[in-house]
């Protein structure tokens, strides 16, 4: 693509703790998000997906966390260099975030009208009565029945799916250029999951917002993402266009993930092949490739040198010694 990407994450590294107990949750990751596209980040629990998202918005709880290196260039500006006030002007305005837990992510003692109107009032300087009107429109956009009547109700009256709609309305409030959705449907029923993802896809499409979709469900990736980053042990181990990744998964970890999703073309009853072994302990990563204790293809070199992302084709990179590059 000719134009510069909307978001360029460069060598981002985030650590937790200090001294002997310190560990690196996000380790030297680099990826781009173009305007309007959906980039999925996938990986097992603890692979650093949420910390990546929080690091982009500088919301990592400090202490114990610190962003120790890298750049997060958004619309040409390195967010890590902004003052606190400048950063606040980005949050909820240019970049919005949707969290995993719809049941606890809304304030129980404030009306949903206030909570949706809040960023509009804050960033657009709209007086409250206008901001509430906007909140009503936003609720209609996420297909909340009786939007006007719901403005003055509190979150506890809503189901998880409805609350996630409210979160989406809140995220869309200031027409952000980028939305980060951290496992937005993990806590929901399967049927509701699809509705929420469809809604998110439709609305980001309408508004032209880019989306970083964090998930550990490769099925979701196939349907909704343009590009994919696969994370393992705090690193991106493979990145490619979504279709490409499905057709030609290269990294042994990605191939393991692929093998573990149920496929429609698979005869019923065929056993899934989960990746054997435990997710790595970040405080004690093995030398060399972090995946080597679980990798069936591991060789001598894998236990000695750490592989970095290397190009293996058009827009396709992976970090594995044993799979050919180029």
């Amino acid at each position: 693509m000719a134009s510069t990407p909307l978001l360029q994450v460069r060598n981002l590294t985030t650590q937790f703790g200090s001294g002997a107990g310190a560990f690196t949750a996000v380790n030297d990751i680099t990826f781009d998000v173009n305007a309007g596209e959906t980039v999925a980040i996938v990986g097992e629990s603890g692979s650093g997906k949420s910390v990546t998202a929080l690091s982009i918005l500088r919301l990592v709880p400090t202490p114990p966390g610190h962003i120790v290196a890298g750049e997060v260039v958004f619309e040409g500006i390195d967010l890590l260099k902004l003052s606190d006030a400048e950063m606040r002007a980005v949050r909820g305005n240019r970049i919005a975030m949707i969290f995993q837990e719809p049941m606890t992510s809304l304030n129980p003692s404030l009306t949903i009208g206030l909570q949706i109107a809040e960023p509009v009032n804050l960033h657009k300087g709209m007086p409250w009565n206008m901001a509430y009107k906007k909140a009503k429109e936003l609720l209609e956009r996420v297909r909340m029945p009786d939007a006007q009547g719901r403005l003055n109700t509190n979150p506890h009256q809503f189901s998880g799916g409805m609350r996630q709609r409210i979160m989406i309305a809140m995220a869309l409030a200031c027409e952000p250029k980028l939305i980060i959705a951290d496992e937005p449907t993990t806590a929901l029923d399967v049927t509701v999951q699809a509705q929420i993802l469809e809604l998110l896809k439709e609305l980001t499409h309408e508004t032209g917002a880019a989306l970083i979709l964090i998930t550990h469900d490769l099925g979701v990736v196939a349907r909704y993402a343009d590009r994919v980053c696969v994370m393992y042990g705090g690193k991106i181990v493979e990145t490619a266009d979504a279709c490409d990744l499905y057709e030609r998964p290269m990294h042994p970890y990605t191939r393991g993930l692929m093998a573990s999703i149920p496929r429609l073309d698979q005869p019923a009853g065929v056993r899934l092949v989960p990746i054997i072994g435990q997710p790595p302990n970040l405080a004690q990563l093995p030398p060399g490739c972090a995946f080597n204790p679980r990798c069936s293809e591991a060789a001598e070199r894998c236990r000695r040198d750490t592989p970095n992302l290397m190009k293996a084709g058009d827009g396709h990179s992976h970090a594995c010694w044993m799979v050919p590059h180029g």
Partner: peptide, 20 residues
């Protein structure tokens, strides 16, 4: 979690304390 949501909206600390 809702305090983290409030930070993610870009609210200043003072408002987060008082309102949320």
């Amino acid at each position: 979690d809702y305090i983290r949501t409030a930070y993610a909206k870009g609210l200043p600390v003072r408002t987060i304390m008082a309102r949320h």
